[in-house]
Structures are given as C-alpha cells and as structure tokens.
Amino acid sequence: MYDFEFERPRSIADAVKALKTEEAIAFSGGQTLMPTMKQRLAMPSKVVSLTAIEEMRGVRQDGSGIWIGGATTHATVARETKDSYPALSSLAARIGDPAVRARGTIGGSVANNDPSACYPAGVLASRGVIVTDRREIPADDFFEGMFMTALEEGEIVTAVKVEVPETAHYAKFIQPASRFPLTAVFVAKYGDGVRVAVTGASESGVFRWTEAEDALSGDWSADAVDGLSAPDGSDMISDLHGTGDYRAHLVKVMTKRAVAAC
C-alpha cells in the first residue's frame, strides 16, 4: 500500500469535511478497497473510515419501503430483512462468504458498482433510491456504467431505500471460485409493473431488461419469457468463465428461473 493519512469521523458532517482533502477516499467495509490498495491500484492521500458513523447503520421500516444505512453490513441486511423483504435478504446472504458479509456494506457495494456485484441488481429492481450526504438519486439515474455512478467527488452514500414488491426473487448463477454472479437476475413484481435487473452480464454494468419487464407485466409467468430473444451478446462481458453469448443466454434462463421461484 502507498502511504495515507487516516481519519475515523463519528458523523456524516465530519466525514464530508474529511473527504474535502484532494484524493481522499471513503472507506466502508473495505472488502474491495483493501485488496485494491494492497495491489497499489488505488493511491488515496487520505482514508476516511465510515465504520464509526452510527447514523449510517441499521435497517428501518420507511413507509411502505425499507431504509438501509449505507454502512450496514451484508450480514445485518440478511438478518434484518428476512421477514420484511425475503428476496433482498437472500441476495445479501449470498454475497461472498461469511467473513466478507460481516464487513462489506451496501453503501460500499453500490458506490463501487462492480459490474458483477449483487446489490446493484437488487436495488435497481426494487425501485431503489440512493441517499447521499447532499441529495437523493433514483437507482435508475445512479448506476452509470462499469464502476461508474452519479456520485460526485467526496459524496457519500449514507443510505439506500427500496420499495418492497408484492413478490420478488434473485436468481444467481454463481461463479463458484469468486462467488460473484456469472450472471444474475433480480425480478420484482409491483402492483403496477414488473422490474427485471441484470448483473454480471453487461459491459456497462447493471441494467434493466425492459423487453422482459413488458412481457412479464402483461403475463406474469415464466412462459412469458419464452417468446423473447435474449439480449444482444455482443455487449456482454466475455472472459474465461463465459462468452458474451453465453451470458446473454443466461440472462433469459435466470429471468425464467427467478419468475418460476416467485
């Protein structure tokens, strides 16, 4: 690791202040950032730990939805949404391994926007809103591309809000070594429409498969997906684990499985 200064503020206001230093970086669970820093792929001048900020932790009922503090770990989300939103609980319970889930946070995951991360799919499908220290950003506008988000310099994800659907399921085709999804689909059915969010597939990160949303909004059944052609494989991630066309095929398969499991 390159040398850095370290701060551990107790409030969001102090964290925002600490992040005004040039090249300062917000550090939540660190389960991605620590390896990145060790490989010297990140060179922050200052590391601002978000783990001591009480107001950024916890899971609360928020009207008809759920409010999740940005520094809430995957393990806590898995436990505390078990009854209120089982599909989201199941997503959180399948990220990485238990030690990673005890540290990694939802805020860190959405801010990083790894194209194969689980949370972006769950949040996008759940009509999520990303709450920051200065504004609220709908998930539709937040995830901008591979590792790209609408966040400005020094902006902190303080919470994530999701709407609880009538029914939902996260179908994850697991890459067994890394436990990231090779491709995964989160399907959420609301009274006025269906959302289908796909991760692990596109070169541009998480996306909504709108053709499937339209088909499923008209006919809520796994068969409704049959008539669709899979999304274009040429825009999909191609690596040693699978070609773009293979991932495109998986998008359709996992969508069907998700609907069937609802």
């Binding site: 370290f6 550090f27 660190g30 389960q31 590391v47 730990s49 393990a75 030690a99 005890a102 540290r103």
Partner: peptide
C-alpha cells in the same frame, strides 16, 4: 480475503483480519 486463514472475531463477528486496518 480469499482463504480465511486470518479469520478473527471483532465484537463477536468473524472477519478477515487481512482486509481490515488496525487503526479502524
């Protein structure tokens, strides 16, 4: 953070101590 050989408990929860800064 991949092998788990460094697992310790922090406030009763298991974590990979190689992926944590001591100052935190």
């Amino acid at each position: 953070g991949q092998c788990g050989a460094c697992t310790v408990h922090v406030n009763g929860r298991r974590i990979n101590s190689c992926l944590a800064l001591a100052v935190m």
